[in-house]
């Protein structure tokens, strides 16, 4: 599974990145690379089974703390 995902990422990154580089859109290339790396890191961590904490606010929500509801 990890291999398939890595190949997919490399393939798309290569194809898209090369077209961006050749069109001399360096800023776009950087942003694209940044997001690709972030996506790959998260996918890798997920597939390895690493527990990433949920970013959602906990269910004991603000309103109950404020006493409303």
């Amino acid at each position: 599974m990890i291999i398939i995902v890595t190949i997919a990422f490399l393939g798309i990154g290569f194809a898209q990145g090369r077209s961006l580089w050749q069109q001399k859109n360096y800023w776009e290339f950087t942003v694209f690379l940044f997001f690709m790396v972030m996506a790959y890191v998260f996918s890798f961590l997920q597939m390895k089974g690493v527990e990433i904490p949920s970013p959602l606010p906990p269910v004991k929500d603000l309103f109950t703390k404020l006493g409303i509801l």
Binding site: Q16, V31, F35, M38
Partner: peptide, 10 residues
């Protein structure tokens, strides 16, 4: 368009 794939994966 370049951002479609990485943002989707995220």
């Amino acid at each position: 368009k370049p951002l479609i794939f990485p943002l989707g994966v995220l």
